[in-house]
Amino acid sequence: MTTPIIEIENMTKTYQLGGDVVHVLSNVSLRIEKGDFLAIVGPSGSGKSTFMNMLGCLDRPDSGSYFLDGREIARLNDNELAVIRNEKIGFIFQNFYLLPRLTALENVELPLLYRGVKTKERQKKAYECLEQVGLLERAHHLPSQLSGGQQQRVAIARALVGNPPILLADEPTGALDSKTSQEIINIMKGLNEQGHTIIIITHDWEVAKQAKRIVRIQDGHLFESRGDLVGISSVD
């Protein structure tokens, strides 16, 4: 069996709210293989985003171990984490989070800028990714000049441009109508077929059931349920 791209053991995260301690994640474990397509579902406030931030190395757990592509994340300092985020992970957020003063093209270029890629090559790759999401003709538009669906496609292009093995999407279709969200999901599925590992948080069952695996978060625990139609894996 190959090493999983993500391996989490007994991860715990608690928040102190006033006097109360909220156990958002208590001793969760999860393995994700290369090329997986995972949907994370759960009620609002259940800790989906918190978990996603752990996966994306934006936040550190209180305890437990996290191996990403064979590296123990807890041992890395802030700079090394920045490099991991840049090279291994592509983030897609619910609210797109594009930089408002940069054009679509410049937004897509950003991850490569922080990787130190030269301007010419950076632009070439950014154009390629914009083409892949079907937005080539909008390359020089500002985010405010784009529709929600177009903005999300720019965000996907930005997540893709560094060719990271993992794509993390926190409710990428939350702000979009069903037709547009299906287009976004189709792009994701295409990327999954190209070999990217995709983890997507969603409230939308129509979206979730298109994933290969569905993981539910509730009361700080993870439950893997069978997708109704696709992807059969055993619960850890």
Binding site: N79, L99, Y114
Partner: peptide
């Protein structure tokens, strides 16, 4: 602050 967060999320170092 939001912009800084976005930049950090996609790999900007300190």
């Amino acid at each position: 602050t939001r912009e800084i967060g976005i930049r950090k999320a996609i790999g900007a170092k300190r």
